[in-house]
Design a protein around this nucleic acid. Sequence first.
DNA 1: TAGATTGTTAATCGATTAACAATC
DNA 2: TAGATTGTTAATCGATTAACAATC
Lengths: 211, 211
Amino acid sequence: MEEKGISQAVISRLPRYYRYLGELKDEGVERISSQELSELMNVTASQIRQDFNNFGGFGQQGYGYNVNYLYTEIGKILGLDKSHHLVIIGAGNLGQALANYVNFERRGFIVKGVFDINPDLFGKDLRGIKVQPLDNVVEFVKQNNIDIAVLTIPKNGAVDITQQLVKYGVKAILNFAHVDLEVPEGVIVENVHLSDSLMKLSYNINHYKKK
Amino acid sequence: MEEKGISQAVISRLPRYYRYLGELKDEGVERISSQELSELMNVTASQIRQDFNNFGGFGQQGYGYNVNYLYTEIGKILGLDKSHHLVIIGAGNLGQALANYVNFERRGFIVKGVFDINPDLFGKDLRGIKVQPLDNVVEFVKQNNIDIAVLTIPKNGAVDITQQLVKYGVKAILNFAHVDLEVPEGVIVENVHLSDSLMKLSYNINHYKKK
DNA sequence: TAGATTGTTAATCGATTAACAATC
DNA sequence: TAGATTGTTAATCGATTAACAATC
């Protein structure tokens, strides 16, 4: 089961498989073939089988895949069977939106702290968590075993705080700031650049003709 | 200049080029070679030249690229020289965050209306735009030449409203709902699935070893 | 002109799809 | 057993990188 060198293209597809399998599970579907799943998801059956086989054989010839089992296994691959402690840095609308989004918690992403530089926000309660001054974050990260930092602050602040965060053990950053963060080897950055998404949309509005 | 069949891989890189070129421009840099840009951005010079050449020759042998010119041209390719009218559907924290994000406006993405089903939010002012009842949206889209809808509502609502929106002329959807939207040919959907990003992060925390 | 650097073709690499033998 | 469907190898396709001739 110790896989390695899986491409990010494959990893990027796992959450979508996970979502579809979760829905099938909720509908009470017990088994599914790569062919059926391929029609549902609009991808090739071949790709589905290749993707799953990167992690070992989850299916059975002549039968297909057990939905429940496959769902659980993909969850494990994604690390959703373990919980992750995260801090949100920036308690503006976006930070608050994320702090309030209860579904993350369901997947094991536990918001432990929310920080901001704006004193007006200090003490504001977000689902039981009070916004703290940003100055507290380093100490907080040290003491609370924080894996993930979510950056919802402007880019200058994001660059500065990143240095501190990785120094004190943050392993991954979900970055909403519109800047490329420099991090040491082994620290993961996932960028969510909303303006980039809008620009792609804009391009495609003008150029997209047929599928 | 009429390009076609540009791959989405290339398009996805354009906003990042645009950002770096904008910064160089602001710093007063006049010209840059693909080699210099490649070091700055951590991509190959070859890829940069290939990417730009999809759209025609923006550079000059022996000189490199004029930063200002290239910046402007990429902006045009992305359609940022034209403005887009958008509506935000869902005025929760995320919808408000986007409505308040002034930088979108700078790039020509003009928020024309914000809608919600929650009466408590009706009339709430977001940078001069008042939240309206969702029931108004179809009429509003018809009359205000709306290109883009941003969906920041839960998935059931998103699926339902999408049918209406595309019927009345919306050409593109920025979808934050955790569901795959079905749209007719020619309508663009760009998904921003934040929980997928967190899952990728989670996977990589556990598996990433070396670059 | 000589040097630099693009534009572009060719080579490589990786990801996707097709095919089919293994096997439940 | 026969039929179905996976696991996996082989073929194809597309994207990235390398190389270099064109040219400023």
